[in-house]
Amino acid sequence: GAKDPVIIAGTGIHRGRAHAELRALAELLGIPVATSYMGKSAIPETHDLALGTMGAVGQKAANEKITSADVLLVVGSCLAPENTKMLAPDFIRPVAQKIIQIDIEPRNAGWTYPIEIGVTSDARLALIEIANAVKSKRVKYDVKKRVADILKFKTEMKYFDEEVRRSEDIPLAPERVVHEFNKAATAEDLVVLDGGNNRIWVTHHFKSLGAGQVFAPGGAAGVGYAPPASVAAGILNPGKKVFCFSGDGGLMMQLYSLEMARQYNVPVTFMVLNNSCLGNVMDYQAHERRVMTQYPTSNFAAIAKGVGIDGVRIEKPGEIAPAIAKARANEGPMLLEFIVQDCPHFRCMG
């Protein structure tokens, strides 16, 4: 039997509505759960067995546990390069680890790594069958000890507790913005991410509170996804608060979403991390040659007011929490513009 197994949960958990089944299996065996970037919130990251997201911008706890595991149960993830530190040979090690991969797309099993077992199945159905098989064996596991060990390990890894989250810097540290939002968020909120560095800050620093509450774009062409997707999420989920994280570049591409949110009175809060640049693109340019990635600062709070939405510009750390509280109390759409540093995303790599 496995001595140190880890479950890796991907976007297949969201698509298969398998959140309850994933949690049930993890709790049945006391197995910790890491997620891919698009699988974030497959299990609430507040759960004792949650390790957070994996990969280059993931949690150190997730990455360390995946590397030391003897068995990896991969459910609904193709283990794409962005989740595996670009297939780093010292991260996932099929020579030393047994990999069991379950995916509804047969081509995904064994696509990036050689595997011990591949299963073509819907995530929810597969997890139910595994749990039933475990119960039929009537084997007792010391789940309490496993959970206690995981909690101790996460404390040592400073799980969602980096000091930069409490930064007093001006311009604002994006990590501080996400941290303050995290303190005010509830498990019922929907959080939608855009392409660019904003998704990296939120992926790394937002500890999800509810299963399936985070929506994120995949691939390299996701800039501009979040504003219209957030409006759609609000319309399709009446009664829920939606928080749309985007950069200034992404929102500038989709300004019509502000008017749409106003027209239908959708309870979306547009959380704009404004660093006056296309940060993710700029991160990969040479410092001495920044091309078409920096521009004058736009005033998105003023733009929001121009279309009839309350807009607030936040420039100091002490202004963050009151602004978020105001947005939570607001029944319609609102825009919060945070003037943040144009810092590289590399500093949150785990």
Rank of each mutant, 00 (worst) to 15 (best):
A2H: 14
D4F: 09
I7H: 04
G10Q: 06
I13G: 02
G16R: 07
A18Q: 05
H19A: 13
A26V: 01
V33K: 06
L49M: 06
M54P: 10
A56D: 10
K60D: 12
A62E: 12
K65N: 06
A69T: 03
L72S: 02
L73M: 15
S77Q: 09
C78R: 13
L79W: 01
L79D: 09
P89D: 12
P89G: 07
D90R: 14
F91G: 03
I92P: 11
R93G: 04
V95M: 14
Q97K: 08
I100R: 00
Q101C: 09
I104R: 07
N108P: 01
N108V: 10
W111S: 13
Y113L: 04
P114K: 09
T120V: 15
A123I: 11
L125A: 14
L127Q: 04
K137F: 11
Y141P: 00
D142E: 10
D142M: 11
R146S: 15
V147Y: 13
A148F: 07
D149A: 14
I150A: 08
E156G: 12
K158T: 15
D161A: 13
R166T: 10
P174H: 01
H179L: 04
F181E: 03
V191N: 13
V192C: 09
D194V: 06
G196F: 09
N197F: 07
N198T: 12
T203L: 12
A211P: 11
G212A: 04
P227F: 00
P227K: 07
A233L: 08
N237R: 12
P238K: 14
K241V: 02
C244W: 06
F245H: 03
D248C: 00
M252W: 06
Q254N: 12
A261Q: 09
P267A: 04
P267N: 02
F270D: 00
V272Y: 00
V281T: 14
Y284K: 14
E288A: 12
A301T: 05
A304W: 05
G306Y: 15
G308T: 10
G308E: 10
M334D: 01
L335T: 00
E337N: 04
E337F: 01
F338L: 03
P344E: 09
P344V: 05
H345S: 12
H345A: 15
F346V: 10
R347P: 06
R347S: 13
C348Q: 15
G350Q: 11
G350K: 14
